[in-house]
């Protein structure tokens, strides 16, 4: 089909879809008038029951914990999928697993490298803060895990991407990802053992608005933070390696 024909077809389809959407969206409650019984109830009972000030975290890691467990395994499966896709390809083309040359990712700019080095510490600290305070303030394992991954990516940017030999922390990332995923599942099993229900909160809930509160919610945040950090870094490392491989081939 020609591009023009495709655009015309899309035009008809889009008009039809827009009409259907307008019809469907007009049936929703007016913006701001939502009255979901489930959400209203959770806003009221989450604090007395769990002492966690962030109701969103309580819903994510406790009341709807099973949903989040699935979500975490989606991320796990995606990271494995990326690794499998890109590593098989390496085997097909007989490219050595380790790039043959070193390369400075930020070029020779001393300013960029110094700024990246200076930012590593603060960004990692911010990530740890966001993970550990997920049950108190906005944030949590998913967000903090990404910030941690960004901090470690800065460490990569600040240095030379050397022959990725043993120094490369791929196995540490894999461990972090797997331990995080398993940790959440184990917290769920802990609920089954100690409270009789999978993913039920089985720890004392602590004091409202203090770091020790929310029962298993902070633990789940730490597990998810480790998993998200590991998965993100693995995916990024694999994509960066692809760049280095192609880069190396063009130079040969």
């Amino acid at each position: 089909m020609t591009r023009r024909g495709r655009m015309v077809l899309f035009g008809f389809g889009a008009v039809g879809l827009a009409a259907l959407m307008a019809w469907g969206l007009a049936g929703l409650p007016s913006f701001g008038d939502f009255d979901g019984a489930y959400g209203t109830l959770l806003s009221k009972i989450a604090v007395p029951e769990r002492q966690a000030s962030s109701v969103v975290a309580a819903v994510t890691f406790d009341y709807r914990g099973l949903d989040t467990l699935g979500e975490e395994f989606i991320l796990f499966a995606a990271a494995v999928g990326v690794l499998v896709l890109l590593r098989i390809q390496r085997g097909e083309e007989d490219i050595p697993a380790e790039p043959q040359h070193s390369r400075l990712p930020t070029g020779r700019s001393l300013t960029l490298r110094s700024v990246a080095t200076a930012l590593v510490g603060p960004v990692v600290l911010l990530g740890l803060y966001i993970v550990s305070h997920g049950h108190l303030t906005p944030g949590g394992g998913f967000q903090g895990g990404l910030v941690l991954a960004a901090g470690l990516l800065l460490a990569y940017l600040s240095g030379a991407h050397l022959r990725l030999g043993r120094a490369r922390p791929v196995s540490a990332m894999e461990l972090s990802e797997a331990a995080g995923a398993a940790g959440f599942a184990l917290i769920g099993l802990g609920g089954l053992v100690f409270a009789g229900v999978f993913l039920e909160n089985f720890l004392p809930t602590g004091t409202f608005r203090s770091l020790i509160s929310g029962g298993t919610i902070p633990l789940a945040n730490v597990a998810v933070g480790a998993e998200v950090m590991g998965a993100t870094l693995l995916i990024l490392a694999e994509l960066l390696d692809q760049h280095l491989l192609t880069h190396g081939r063009h130079r040969r």
Binding site: G36, G39, V59, T60, D67, I74, L75
Partner: peptide
């Protein structure tokens, strides 16, 4: 509503993957 915030978080993770 806190439930839709949680659903959005799931949505973001799925998009990233």
């Amino acid at each position: 509503d806190p439930v839709v915030a949680t659903l959005t978080l799931t949505d973001v993770v799925v998009e990233a993957t």
